[in-house]
Design a protein around this nucleic acid. Structure first.
Lengths: 223, 223
DNA sequence: TAAGATTGGTTCAACATTGGATCAGATAAA
DNA sequence: TTTATCTGATCCAATGTTGAACCAATCTTA
């Protein structure tokens, strides 16, 4: 039987792909380069890459090159797209993971002006009587707490969550669950968080935030 | 050197935009200037700026210039762009928030087949001797732990973190910090996590994961 | 207001790179 | 020998970059 070099090259390529090579832009070297690298004719490389194409590992475009499908550059966009369909239950679970920790960070790290911004958002929310306005300053309160912790990535995750929650199905849900009584509860709970921040009390801020989020979850999901 | 210069220029421009350049008046330099600066033809710059226009980062007006629209920090595209610049320190902080919790979820929620997948990733990583291959199965181990918890949003956040860590500066950093000794330490720590999962021990999984991430942080950041 | 300069929009031809396709010949296994 | 595979080569088609020219909208200046 002949040598089946193409098969070997295909498995080598697969190994290198799965080991993270060419992940940066998802683009493989030209067939001519691979042929030179493996010391083999281009036809053989073409056959090997053809196998990868057959099992969907790779896509080829004339004039452009060969690209990995597993890690194409649209993947970040597609992740965000999937996130947009996040269920309220999942979201609340993650908020209860992140926000208490953020509050604790904030209690130790916040500057005076940042704390002032938090207080201001809290105050404005308490004064707001209309649901959309309250809603906005409520979100702003949480946002400013995140702004206090010195972690940019955490801030961006929160921005992402906020963007998702601002979409229409969420808005409807929040509107349904809104009531004057609940608004007052939220204000009291925000007050507790704020005071813990002002007292530079990480543990207090953490538990106050967690308690608040439990309330929000109960109201939002009705359980 | 191959093609797709326009792609590279587009990502460079995005980076510079999200790093706050040209924020004063929101106006980018003329295409002719950019072409000179990057040392490419204006057509290439036009194509690159065209990409930015496509995803809404920028608007163009004949006779006036090209202007940023991303002064709106809540746009998803700009959030993703900022996340891509996440520092290793920030990333590790968030991993230490999320992954122990995910491990705890996994210990209570995972199905037998999911746990088997985790074990398989662990085993393959332990057997891998090359750095890129170990790296890949290491990441896969963590990924499969996340797959066990029943929260889709959490999974997507982890995908996001993984995508960020797959970018070139991170890869270099991981390569520098890699050593055979550390690989063995990671294997032992993964083993501990896996065993906690198999014993359905949320607290154990949580602390094992946290300990592991502390080790990774120490190795990666050198402190 | 009018003229000129600046800037993005459009088109074109030339060239380089890259995957697609084919063929004749060499090599090795059945 | 027959058959499948690899080699080396050539040509094609699609795509990207370059450099240039010209147009149209806008701004600046006289």
């Amino acid at each position: 039987m002949p040598k089946l070099v193409a098969n070997d090259i295909a498995t080598m390529l697969k190994k290198r792909i799965s080991s993270g090579e060419w992940l940066e832009d998802g683009r493989m070297p030209p067939e001519r380069d691979l042929a030179a690298e493996f010391g083999v004719a281009r036809n053989t490389v073409r056959r090997a890459v053809g196998f990868l194409e057959d099992d969907g590992t790779v896509v080829r475009h004339v004039g452009r090159g060969t690209f990995l499908t597993a890690t194409n550059p649209t993947s970040i966009a597609s992740m965000v797209a999937r996130m947009e369909g996040t269920s309220p239950a999942d979201m609340m679970e993650i908020r209860q993971l992140l926000e208490p920790a953020a509050a604790a960070f904030a209690a130790t790290n916040a500057s005076a002006t940042e704390l002032n911004a938090v207080r201001e958002a809290h105050q404005t929310a308490c004064d707001a009587m209309e649901m959309p306005e309250f809603e906005h300053w409520d979100a702003e309160f949480h946002h400013r707490v995140f702004a206090c912790c010195r972690n940019d990535f955490l801030k961006e995750i929160h921005n992402l969550m906020r963007a998702i929650r601002n979409q229409s199905p969420w808005f409807e849900m929040k509107k349904r669950s809104f009531s004057e009584e609940r608004r007052q509860v939220y204000c009291r709970e925000h007050q507790a968080i704020l005071e813990a921040l002002l007292h530079r009390d990480p543990e207090g801020a953490k538990t106050a935030m967690l308690g608040h989020l439990k309330t929000v979850e109960k109201n939002l999901l009705g359980r």
